[in-house]
Computed example of a mutant assay.
Amino acid sequence: MARRNKIYEGKAKILYEGPEPGTYVQYFKDDATAFNAEKKATIEGKGVLNNRLSEFFMTGLTNVGVPNHFIKRLNMREQLIRQVEIIPLEVIVRNFAAGSMAKRLGMEEGTQLPRPIIEFSYKDDKLGDPLVPEEYIIAFGWATQQDMDDIVALALRVNDFLAGVMYGVGIKLVDFKIEIGRVWDNDYMRLIVADEISPDSCRLWDIETGQKLDKDVFRRDLGNLADAYTEVARRLGVLPTNVTHATKPTLIN
């Protein structure tokens, strides 16, 4: 595909102008960041894995009726997506205490929560993506009360799908974050899942051993990030079952 005008570049992805109105091309980089980009590295093959894994999850969501921005994968690093107006929130769904939640509340990591807990953070790297209550979101006009009801419903449906898929391959879905975007069909506005779903945006632990298979491997210097992501892809059938490490992954179409 010929390179098009760059629309936006983030820490892990680049958005380019799409071939048709209302579309973007999303390019997955090999860059890994943590702690609001204070820690950085380049992990060869990471973008290829995340492109394919996000395709897998978004396609699965489509199949169970959860609307999202994914249209099709174009190549090893790019996918065609719908253009959306991103709501400036990260929607965090937690099934077990981990990360900042465990630290804030003094809980042991891995403690099962009484029910899935949804948190919202305001998307602003300079502010450290601070947690915000629903009252702020509605008062500042980032989303309406109806939007919030719809966002919570979407987030819980995504959680049900991801948790089931992961459990089936021996992985515990500890938590994840998604972004939500607005799209218009004529005069009708609806909310859909956007951005990506990958080990970059989830906490994934092996059910038997507790081994981390997500970006915490990079955050906490626990090993090779490409190995962890490759293991997730292998279990989900995105990689051949005999692959144990894929610096330059060979993917199944």
Rank of each mutant, 00 (worst) to 15 (best):
V91W: 03
V193I: 13
V48S: 04
P114M: 03
N5S: 13
N95T: 09
D125I: 04
M76V: 02
I86C: 01
A143S: 10
K215I: 05
F70P: 01
K72E: 12
T241Q: 15
G18F: 05
S121A: 12
S121H: 01
V238C: 15
I137D: 00
D30W: 12
D206V: 06
V217H: 08
P88T: 01
D185H: 14
Y27E: 10
A97I: 08
V66F: 05
G10A: 07
E44V: 13
I14Q: 07
P116E: 12
K11W: 08
I81E: 03
K29F: 15
R219W: 02
N159G: 14
V66P: 07
L251W: 14
T33A: 03
R77Y: 05
E9G: 10
A98E: 05
M166K: 05
D129I: 01
I252D: 01
Q83E: 11
M189S: 12
S54Y: 14
P133Y: 00
G65I: 06
G10Q: 13
P133E: 01
A143I: 00
D147F: 00
R182S: 11
I86N: 05
G18N: 02
V238A: 15
A194N: 09
P116G: 13
P88A: 06
L239R: 11
N242R: 05
I43F: 05
T62F: 07
Q145G: 03
D214F: 06
F120D: 00
D206I: 04
T230S: 12
D175V: 14
N253C: 04
E9L: 15
D227K: 13
L15D: 08
R104P: 03
N95V: 01
M58E: 00
E17P: 05
E109M: 02
G99K: 11
I192Y: 03
V66G: 05
P19W: 13
L191K: 10
A233L: 11
I151W: 10
M107A: 15
N75R: 06
K39M: 01
G10C: 07
L15G: 08
I71P: 10
I137H: 00
F70I: 01
Q145N: 09
L15C: 11
G181T: 15
E135C: 00
K126L: 14
I7E: 09
L74Y: 06
D185E: 15
A163I: 08
E90Y: 01
V158P: 15
L80H: 11
K103G: 07
I14V: 14
I71L: 11
E78F: 03
I178A: 09
Y27V: 09
N186W: 08
M76G: 06
P130H: 04
